[in-house]
């Protein structure tokens, strides 16, 4: 293959930007930013270990308290990882699916455990169960299609993931899929 650039031009290209060395104060700025976010822990030794243990214990206590009051989610999730993309996982169930109270309570425990795991990865943004009652605003569809659809959305989770594949992997692990429900995964487009 004949390159369209001469060797001299390729050499100049490779050197492009090399005159811009790292700014002297950038390293300290980055370290400070990480310290503020506890991504660098100042100090060493048993004090750090003790502080980490206390933090972990406090987080666990908050998590357990949250589980007692929230429906699906722990009330205090760890900081959400700063992944660029967000996806909504729409939990679909057959329109005629009926759960008794015991089954529903069991499901809630399962979903909460799964959501807790996603939150622990810093990937959980939101999640709610939706009421079965549906109300519409705007023109009715011809033939009342909406009420005749085979599935309904019973809940949702919003998660952060690097890729669609990662979001699909999360969805596959959701207990909803194990119980025969379908999950529609759609990327949230920033506007």
């Amino acid at each position: 293959m004949v390159d369209d650039l001469t060797p001299e031009q390729l050499q100049a290209l490779a050197a492009l930007g090399s005159e811009h060395g790292l700014p002297a104060d950038l390293e300290d700025n980055v370290v400070n930013a990480l310290q503020q976010r506890r991504l660098i822990v100042a100090g060493t030794g048993w004090r750090v270990a003790m502080r980490a243990a206390i933090t972990a214990a406090a987080a666990m206590l908050i998590f357990l308290l949250g589980v007692g009051t929230a429906r699906w989610l722990p009330t205090a999730s760890p900081p959400v990882a700063e992944v660029d993309r967000q996806f909504i996982l729409l939990l679909l169930e057959p329109i005629d699916a009926v759960l008794d109270q015991a089954e529903e309570a069991e499901r809630v425990v399962e979903y909460r455990a799964w959501a807790g795991g996603v939150a622990a990865q810093g990937r959980l943004v939101a999640g709610e169960k939706l009421s079965d009652d549906r109300h519409f605003v705007g023109p009715r569809l011809a033939g009342e299609i909406e009420s005749a659809s085979a599935e309904r959305v019973t809940g949702f989770f919003v998660v952060r993931a690097e890729t669609l594949q990662a979001a699909l992997s999360l969805a596959r692990e959701c207990p909803h899929a194990r119980h025969g429900g379908r999950i529609e995964v759609r990327e949230i487009q920033p506007t």
């Binding site: 950038l26 700025n29 980055v30 930013a33 990480l34 976010r37 991504l39 990882a81």
Partner: peptide
Amino acid sequence: EEVVQETWIRAAR
């Protein structure tokens, strides 16, 4: 600079 700082924050996370 801002981009590089943000890069390291995300990477550390």
